[in-house]
Nucleic acid binder design. Structure first.
Lengths: 342, 342
DNA sequence: ATTATTTGTGCAAAGGTTTGCATAGATCTA
DNA sequence: TAGATCTATGCAAACCTTTGCACAAATAAT
């Protein structure tokens, strides 16, 4: 059988409560007793039973995270890897573990969260981006259970969410292109219903406005997050009477598809058309030409998410509603000033 | 306060044990009682406290997984995403959650495992690939604690490990190239000390042997898993008097770097040199030309790992020592028969 | 020397389940 | 009809900690 706090107590000639207090560094325990108990703990190879501890303290030091079911876009682009890495690392250094689950059956998707919460298996929950209305949000909210949204922002001031500022990033990119002299700037979006599409499109049009450039509907395209889709869209772009001199893509993968298609049609990048991506994945660095992109700090998003969640859990009143991870523009070969205007 | 089994028992007019038995579908409970209790559970919104349950059953339905610290190669190539996706999905459908942690401080790397195990926080452990001698292995072994190795095979028959058959895959690739008519086949490896390098190199040389082609040391190169490294290596290859007509890369990323460098030097792929990668990442599909590669079934590796671990946990005696996930060769544009020989 | 304060420990309850054993009532056997 | 067998349920111990409260001993204050 496993060695318990009682075994330690007996061997050390003290009561279990004393041992418990030694473990938690209770200031009331004398140096002498503490040393004695610690020695016995060492000898016996004692390790506290976390379940028993959790049961009485009503605290698990676990953070729950439920993977959305299809989660296709989530898992590509290193998005997931990086964010999880940030989450796990920060959690570990803060004394928390990550409890990851997913739902087996579509209908009961939100049951997973309920089980974790009601089963008292986690102290808080991280909800990864999901496009649909998420029943988990209202559930957690009503339960007043600590949780943080990541990669998606909600407008409720009582909910903490962590996100990068897609609007500002797109705006900065567009502004820079304008400064380079571009006047005809295209935008290849992902599905319009996604917040990420909306926001980046938003920043794009804001920058146009600031730069005194009229927004042209025929310069905005909807596509999927695949090279194929991007190539199809590019074919459409090439049919335009006035071709853009620069294209902003929702994504590095899309940027990649655009570049490929431009090449296929005999256009050089960036000489004939500049292209910018998003997310700064390894693809952006490996592509030829290397793609200018935006590093949205995914690792840091993970870290900040955990930090914010722990604050919620501890309830020290410092809860921010909306945490924005700063982005960083990475300019590479795929962008230059427009030839035609030069 | 949360509603407990006792509240349910009282309201239903039965004892807590009966409620417990209803929950676990004990056959001895009568239909009538069962229905009555379930109704009350519903009304009260009862959810079992998993901690209390774990405490008494000594079982958590959690599977632990410790992320290696630096884990650079692990996190790229979608390797991690895919394998985790497989793990979490399979675990969830088998009634397990994944408890993920990492060590904060290098020295205490293995303490993380010890904590999970000794703290009775998990029923089993998955150890992800790590190159060094892992103290966790001997610890878990000695403790007779259920665990499974993934992405790395050990030669102990009492340890279950899940891996793809790198030897067979490399062998199959090489054989195919030989069948296409290639006689001068290069191999760009990762660091030689990694098992994955050794195994793939092994398969390569076996196939050469089978094909009656002498193994040439000057056709084997050591590099890192980056495009830059691959490009440097390629420069060396191009200095060879007799250039290979085909090159096998340890990795899609490396294959990508090789292709890039060949292009820079005015060589066409595959006409002047065929190139094959490994892992079948999205890069292989997106690269120009698309890279032939090996799908090593990472998602399935995750699934099989969990399955094997659960068998170990349940101890139903079906433990296999070594589980091999079948690979699949994906032939794409980057390979053709050698021009020079044709 | 007596009382008040501080310091260090122990007692026992609580946290929510599961489960071996006992038992009451129902059904069957002869 | 008495005993045997079965069925459905309850009792109480066990799982391992934490923690409020009480208390004894040591120290300080008067």
């Amino acid at each position: 059988m496993a060695v318990t706090i009682i075994n330690v107590a007996e061997k050390a000639g003290v009561s279990p409560s004393t041992v418990s207090r030694v473990i938690s560094n209770d200031s009331r325990i004398s140096q002498k007793t503490s040393r004695k108990v610690r020695k016995v703990m060492e000898e016996l190879g004692y390790h506290p039973n976390l379940m028993a501890k959790s049961l009485v303290t009503r605290t698990t030091h676990n953070i729950g995270i439920v993977l959305p079911r299809p989660a296709e876009e989530l898992f590509q682009n290193q998005f997931f890897s990086e964010i999880i890495r940030g989450i796990v690392t920060k959690a570990a250094s803060s004394g928390y573990d990550i409890l990851m689950t997913t739902s087996t059956n579509e209908i009961e998707e939100w049951k997973a969260v309920e089980r974790l919460v009601q089963g008292r298996n986690v102290d808080g929950i991280i909800l990864l981006a999901s496009q649909r209305e998420d029943p988990n949000i209202s559930f957690l909210r009503e339960k007043k259970f600590p949780f943080v949204l990541v990669g998606r922002s909600e407008d409720y001031s009582d909910i903490t969410s962590v996100d990068n500022d897609n609007i500002a990033a797109a705006q900065a990119i567009t502004r820079h292109l304008i400064e380079l002299g571009h006047r005809r700037i295209g935008f290849v979006s992902g599905p319009f219903e996604l917040t990420v599409s909306k926001d980046r499109l938003d920043g794009y049009s804001k920058a146009l406005l600031d730069g005194g450039i009229p927004f042209r509907c025929d310069y905005v395209f909807e596509g999927a997050f695949t090279p194929d889709s991007a190539m199809q869209v590019t074919e459409q772009i090439l049919k335009l009477e006035e071709r853009p001199t620069a294209i902003i893509a929702i994504d590095d993968v899309v940027a990649f598809g655009i570049i490929r298609s431009l090449w296929n049609n005999g256009l050089r990048v960036p000489e004939d058309c500049s292209v910018v991506g998003f997310n700064n994945t390894s693809l952006a660095e490996m592509c030829l030409p290397q793609i200018s992109s935006v590093d949205i700090g995914m690792y840091q998003m993970g870290q900040s998410t955990v930090q914010a969640l722990i604050q919620r859990i501890k309830g020290d009143g410092f809860e921010q509603a909306r945490i924005i991870i700063p982005h960083q523009l990475i300019w590479r070969r795929s962008v230059t000033s427009p030839d035609s205007e030069a």
